[in-house]
């Protein structure tokens, strides 16, 4: 496993564990994701990736272990505070606010800077402009007045991504961005990730689509039974016998 000199830690966990009843979903996971890179988290179904994501973003409290973001301890912080620290996330089965318009979906993510902005109109011109810009960027600006429940699943995925970007996170966690969408859209999401990464944003992606993972990521962490079993560049991971074993059960 080669560790380059220029690696800076972004999100780090140490000994993270969580059990549900008798099932150890995450089991002493110690992982470091690289700042400024596209990191991927892969593993067989039920290997604890989603639970890991949920712990890191504060949706679930871990039984033990710590989560650090750029050296700062963020374990057990409320999700909105983790978001404020600069981590944005998407959900596995794409979640939007169904009975709000596409534009409103984005305006929710505006972080009010003071009481004035909190009680002031959510349709603040500057924020609306920024939201429209993001919608243009993901290519659904023509739908801004539609309710989120009325747009297609692929459009909802793009909407969710735009919503995450609205919070100006510098680290973005995507839970299965290619799940349930067709190849053309997968390509488009991949391009977006590359562009955003080039602008300096760090990505951590849970994904089953190996084509996407291999073409997109700089650093891959492989999970099995709630803990990492291998990590490295795409080519390193592909050749790792432990990975093949975990996936194929050889």
């Amino acid at each position: 496993m080669s560790v380059q000199q220029d690696v800076r830690p972004s999100l780090q966990t140490e000994g993270l564990s969580k059990a549900f009843g008798g099932v150890q979903a995450v089991n002493g996971a110690t992982v470091t994701f690289h700042e400024g890179k596209v990191n991927a988290l892969i593993g067989p179904n039920g290997s604890g990736k989603s639970t890991f994501f949920n712990i890191v973003t504060g949706m679930i409290a871990p039984d033990s272990g710590t989560v650090r973001f750029r050296g700062q301890d963020i374990t057990r912080r409320a999700p909105h505070r983790i978001c404020a620290a600069g981590i944005g996330r998407s959900f596995q089965l794409c979640r939007t606010f169904p009975r709000m318009t596409v534009l409103e979906n984005l305006l929710v993510a505006v972080r009010p800077t003071g009481l004035g902005q909190l009680v002031g109109s959510s349709q603040n011109r500057r924020q609306v402009e920024r939201a429209r810009e993001l919608l243009r960027r993901v290519g659904i600006d023509h739908l801004e007045g539609s309710l989120a429940q009325d747009i297609s699943y692929g459009q909802q995925k793009l909407l969710e991504l735009a919503g995450v970007l609205m919070g100006e996170p510098d680290t973005i966690l995507l839970d299965e961005p290619a799940g349930g969408v067709n190849p053309a859209l997968i390509g488009r999401i991949g391009t977006l990730v590359k562009e955003l990464n080039a602008e300096g944003r760090t990505f951590i992606i849970v994904e089953h689509n190996m084509d996407m993972v291999m073409s997109l990521s700089d650093h891959i962490v492989v999970f099995d039974r709630g803990a990492p079993i291998a990590e490295g560049t795409p080519s390193e991971v592909q050749q790792d016998p432990r990975v093949l074993e975990a996936y194929l059960g050889v």
Binding site: G58, P79, H80, R89, M100
Partner: peptide, 19 residues
Amino acid sequence: AGLKAIREDEDKAEALGVP
């Protein structure tokens, strides 16, 4: 906007930074 987001999907609102 934050309140209505809570009504629609509370977890999602949290993740987007709504206290």
